[in-house]
């Protein structure tokens, strides 16, 4: 099989730019790998993250475990907290390393390279997601393992396939949302930092990170309908802690999986539209990628 990257003389620049589907696809796959590479290699080069990204956040999660112990809450609540702590890794990754990333890439002067590169912006963002997920997965697994060992959390899982499907859909919806927010933060310009901050603690609260979201009533229902973290976490809790007390008032895991499918389609569709529009604006007006001071 001949390589798609071999230089071949063409009759005109237009002909050179007319890539076949295979070449486009391979270039995008390489783009994903290329963007994921610095994040994965960074994990190996800067090992301090093992302490700061895994051990210390677990202590924050532990704080809520001790709150429930001090309040003599049912043991299942400790499991809810540990699962919430594991999913925090993905939310933080989506917000800090995707949503705010394009804005920071602009600051670093990389954004114009992305827009001129012959790959889709979706591929670049997907590369960020894949690279970031490596670290988030590690953190989530460690949090779950330590939670099970140290705090004796016992998972009662009857539908493994549905649980894995819900987890995968939650990630797809979360990273789709991350792509939408990346475009929005870039359009809104400065202070992506504060916008990102705004989406951490309030989202933790309305998503029921440390308690069943059904306890929030109408606010919880609104969260389940709009925030992938809320609906995914609630479905996973229902599937990982079958018949646990406190998990009432929300749709069944099957319905919540359906909600996640709809969210994934909408977020990725909107992200695609917005990124295409951003690329057009960047090329036509030349201001979007410009650094100011």
């Amino acid at each position: 099989m001949s390589s798609v990257y071999v230089n071949r003389p063409t009759a005109s620049p237009q002909a050179a730019a007319a890539w076949d589907t295979r070449r486009q696809l391979l270039t995008n796959v390489r783009g994903i790998g290329g963007r994921a590479y610095p994040r994965v290699s960074g994990i190996l080069r800067e090992r301090s993250w093992l302490f700061f990204e895994i051990l210390l956040p677990f202590m924050t999660t532990s704080g809520f475990v001790f709150v429930y112990r001090a309040l003599h809450a049912p043991p299942a609540y400790i499991g809810f907290v540990v699962l919430g702590g594991a999913m925090t890794a993905f939310w933080l990754n989506v917000m800090w390393m995707m949503a705010a990333q394009l804005y920071w890439e602009k600051d670093q002067g990389n954004l114009e390279l992305y827009f001129t590169a012959p790959v889709s912006m979706m591929s670049i963002l997907l590369g960020m997601a894949v690279g970031g997920m490596a670290m988030s997965f590690a953190r989530a697994i460690v949090v779950l393992a330590i939670g099970a060992i140290v705090y004796g959390v016992q998972f009662q899982i009857e539908q493994w396939a549905l649980l894995l499907a819900v987890f995968a859909l939650t990630l797809a919806a979360l990273y789709g949302l991350g792509m939408v927010l990346a475009s929005l933060f870039l359009l809104w310009g400065r202070e992506a930092w504060h916008l990102t901050q705004l989406t951490v603690e309030p989202i933790y609260f309305v998503s029921g990170l440390n308690f069943p979201v059904g306890r929030l009533g109408a606010l919880g229902a609104l969260a389940i309908g709009t925030i992938p973290l809320a609906v995914g976490l609630d479905a996973m809790r229902q599937l990982a802690f079958v018949n646990a007390p406190g998990l009432g008032g929300t749709p069944s895991p099957g319905i919540e999986a359906g909600i996640l499918v709809v969210m994934t389609v909408i977020f990725i569709g909107v992200a695609r539209w917005m990124l295409t529009r951003l690329e057009m604006l960047a090329r036509r007006e030349g201001k979007l990628t410009m650094r100011w001071g």
């Binding site: 960074g42 080069r45 800067e46 301090s48 993250w49 924050t60 800090w96």
Partner: peptide, 11 residues
Amino acid sequence: TRQESWQYPEA
């Protein structure tokens, strides 16, 4: 620290 250490202080 190198890489993305934004979450370190909060951790």
